[in-house]
Nucleic acid binder design. Structure first.
Lengths: 198, 198
DNA sequence: CGCAAATTTGAACATCGTCAACTCTAGTGG
DNA sequence: CCACTAGAGTTGACGATGTTCAAATTTGCG
């Protein structure tokens, strides 16, 4: 059980254990030279982590942090490895999860390859809607407790620019910001906005 | 056997086969709305592809193109799946390869999160040096036949800007451009340049 | 209620993209 | 082997875009 903002693991205190996210949201990030957060991804269950450390010993410094209250289950590395090596089905499932991560990261790359901040923001919102969205009466609520700051970090633009561009979307009624969650009134219209401002 | 510039596979002609890259270099990319290339990665052997299609049926349009003469071996999807499902060792090896791809993509994200083009270029060169570099007499040659245009596409900056920034590095004697290959005379100095221009 | 963090806003400035013209190079065909 | 051509790379001027910095405002939570 981890509280909001608590670091679940980072390389300094990592002993090889395998974590399963059971509830809550986490963010995965590294640090830039200036100490700025470089966010790789947000996740909800199910998730096995830290994949790179479990399967090969990358030295890359990565932090796994709880965004809100999160619960995780922990297994010893040897137990996990022994289990999947003797259970093809579980290994295949694990592989599929890794492939899913890969797809996420490809979407992240797509995202960052947008030259301008406005389409970059829209694309990000659409991806988040697909991954964390709950549809209700035509609207889609992105059920991820994300701050503008985190959003800015994932887009690699500044907080200020994010704020300005979000404002534009809200004024165009293509986005709402309710209870600290983003709500997309009409996905189709937002997709159209992306194409027109590519 | 594929010639330079030849498309090895894209979604329209894909039938589920599993490809192994045996020799040569390939680039993996998608297309932006304007038809611009969005490069995900460059690869040399060994490589199994297309991972996302093999393990789950993503509809994402991806192209695999030979950069120079490349040879690939092809297996039927069912054969491959049958093989790895009955050979834990092979499945584990495959998983490790996917994890390696994941690490590559994380580095790509790191890369694109640099706000300015100059450090972004330097970081990219350092990553390429790690993946494709051959050390010889203190120098490291990036043995990947990459054009400025491709480099620009992976960095999501324009050809022109790439050209200008490469010029800066060459004038500072931190980089050489020989026989269409990049050569880094001194990795440490280049790393230092990155830190100073973060 | 009150602090700390998050968000907004404005103005000046730096950076990168765009466009257009030009040069260089690799690969082609005679 | 040479001439030709398309693609790759260079350069300069200018405008679009985003960052930076500073200051005000709002929000979350103890």
């Amino acid at each position: 059980m981890f509280k909001k903002g608590q670091i679940i693991l980072h390389i300094d205190n990592y002993n090889g254990d395998v974590f399963y996210l059971e509830s809550g949201f986490i963010k995965i990030y590294g640090l830039g030279i200036n100490g700025d957060e470089r966010i790789y991804a947000f996740h909800k269950p199910p998730l096995i982590f830290p994949i790179s450390y479990i399967f090969n010993s990358t030295k890359k410094e990565i932090f796994y942090e709880a965004i809100n209250i999160a619960t995780v289950r922990v297994a010893k590395n040897e137990e996990f490895m022994h289990f999947i090596k003797n259970n093809t089905h579980a290994l295949l499932e694990t592989t599929l999860e890794v492939v899913e991560l890969l797809n996420n990261y490809m979407a992240r790359i797509d995202n960052l390859e947008f030259g301008k901040s406005y389409p970059r923001l829209i694309f990000r919102l659409l991806v988040l809607a697909k991954r964390f969205g709950i549809a209700k009466g035509g609207e889609v609520t992105i059920e991820l407790p994300i701050t503008h700051k985190d959003l800015a970090n994932t887009l690699s633009i500044t907080r200020e620019t994010t704020s300005r561009e979000v404002e534009v979307l809200i004024k165009k009624k293509l986005l709402k910001w309710q209870n600290r969650l983003f709500v997309i009134p009409n996905i189709k219209k937002l997709e159209k906005e992306l194409e027109e401002n590519y």
